[in-house]
Design a protein around this nucleic acid. Structure first.
Lengths: 219, 219
DNA sequence: AATAGATTATTTGTTGAACAACAGAAAGCC
DNA sequence: GGCTTTCTGTTGTTCAACAAATAATCTATT
C-alpha cells in the first residue's frame, strides 16, 4: 500500500512523515510491538531510508517507538508498568499544578471547552472524540503552569496514554464516567478552590488508573 | 581539529557521537547560539553527514540543540525565560516528589553520597565537581519517585541547567551556599519529615533561581 | 523429535556523492 | 541608502553501496 506523504508548505518532509507515523501509532495503525522495517516503510511512504531514520530517532525520543540497536525499531508496547508510571507522572505533575492554579488563567477556558466537547460527543455516541476531549482537558490542566517544557513532556505522556487506550476496546468504560468528574474539577478551579480541585483530581487519577489496569488485566 | 570518535564496544556510532556532542555542549565546547555546520562537524568528527543529522535530531529533542528547518542547528541559548521555566519545572516536580518521599528509599543513599562528594570537592576547591554533585543530589530527589519517565525528563532538565550554569563564570557562587541546605533537606528526608523537607526545598529553589537570574543579569 | 551448530539471507548502521531547495550574502541599479 | 537581482553556501533529501549484526534456514548429532 503506497501512501506518499503530501507536501505541506513550510514543513519539512521529515516532520510530516513523523506526524503521519505518530498518527498511525496512536490510532492503532500498527500493532503493539510491531517491527517497523526501514526498507518497507520507506518504500510505502516513498521517502528515503535516511529520512525515515531521522523520523525514527524523533519518535523514539517521544516514547512511541522503541529503538533497539542493530535489531531495528518497534512500536512501543504499553504494559502495566507503563500505565503505572504514566499515572504516577500525572499524579505528581497535575496535582501539584492544580494546587497552584489560579482561576483567571486562560487555560481554564480550554478546560471548559474540552468538557463541553466531551458532553456533546457523548450524546452523539462518538467515543473517540470523548476520549480526545478528556485527554485535552488534562493537557489544559498542565497548561495552567505556563511551562513549555512541561507542556512538551506532557504531550508525550498523553500520546503514550492514547496508545495504551488504543489497545483496549472499551472506550465508553474508559472515558464516560469521568466527564462529570472533569466538570467538577473545572468548577472548583473556576471557584478558586485549588486544594479541593487537586484533591478531586488525585482521586480521579487513582480511580482511572484502577479502571485502566483492570481493562489491561482483562486483555 | 579532527577528533574521530573512538569505537566503544556495543554502542552505535551515532550514540557515541551524540554523547560527544552532548558533553561538548554542556561543558562549553561550543558557544551559546553557535551554528553547528553539518559539513564541518561531520568532517571534524569523521562521520557521515547522515549520521550527524540523526544525532542532531536526538539532541534537539533533549533541548541542547535548536533545529531550525533549512537554516540548520544551533546550540541552545539558555536565557532568563529558560531559567524561569527550568526552576518552575523543578518546583512542581521536585517539591511534590519530596512531599511523598519515604526515608527508606534507596535513592536517599544517592542523595547522601552527593552531599558527601560536594563537601569533599569544596575542600579541594574543585567547583566543577561541586556543581555536578549538587545536580546529582537533585536527580536523586527525582529518583525517589521511581518513575523512569520523570527520571529521563529530569535528566534533560539537568543537562539544560548545566548548559546554563556553563554560561556563568561563578561556580562558587552558584553551588557553595547550597551544600549545607542540601544536607539539611537530606536529614529531614532521613528523619521522615517530608513536608519540612519539601518546604525547605521549595525555599532553596526560589533562592537558587534568584541567584542564577542575578548572575544572568550581570552578564 | 529435539537440539546445537553452521550457513545463508535479511536488515540495520553507516558512508559518500549528488542534486534540489532554501537562506543569506554580495552585487547591481535607481 | 534602499531595493532588487544574482550568486554562494548550506541544508534537506535521495540513492547506491557495503560492512556488521541479527534472524532465518539448513544440516548434523543425539
Amino acid at each position: 500500500m503506497r501512501t506518499k506523504v503530501p507536501q505541506d508548505g513550510g514543513r519539512s518532509l521529515a516532520e510530516m512523515v513523523a506526524a503521519r507515523i505518530r498518527e498511525q501509532v496512536i490510532h492503532g495503525g500498527f500493532s503493539p510491538g510491531q517491527h517497523l522495517s526501514e526498507a518497507e516503510l520507506s518504500d510505502s511512504l516513498e521517502v528515503s531510508r535516511n529520512t525515515l531514520r531521522e523520523v525514527f530517532r524523533v519518535l523514539t525520543k517521544e516514547g512511541l517507538l522503541r529503538h533497539e540497536p542493530n535489531r531495528g525499531v518497534f512500536v512501543a508496547t504499553p504494559d502495566m508498568a507503563t500505565i503505572v508510571d504514566l499515572y504516577r507522572v500525572r499524579r505528581i505533575i497535575q496535582v501539584e499544578i492544580l494546587e497552584q492554579a489560579f482561576s483567571g488563567h486562560p487555560a481554564v477556558r480550554k478546560m471548559r471547552e474540552a468538557v463541553e466537547r466531551a458532553k456533546e460527543a457523548r450524546e452523539a455516541g462518538d467515543w473517540l472524540v470523548v476520549g480526545s476531549a478528556d485527554l485535552a482537558f488534562h493537557g489544559a490542566i498542565v497548561a495552567l503552569a505556563d511551562s513549555p517544557r512541561l507542556d512538551a513532556f506532557f504531550s508525550h505522556v498523553l500520546a503514550e496514554m492514547r496508545l495504551a487506550f488504543g489497545l483496549l476496546s472499551e472506550p465508553e468504560l474508559l472515558h464516560s464516567p469521568f466527564i462529570e468528574l472533569n466538570e467538577e474539577i473545572l468548577k472548583l478551579v473556576e471557584l478558586g478552590k485549588r486544594s479541593e480541585a487537586a484533591s478531586r483530581l488525585e482521586k480521579y487519577l487513582v480511580n482511572a488508573e484502577r479502571v485502566v489496569l483492570g481493562a489491561f488485566t482483562r486483555h
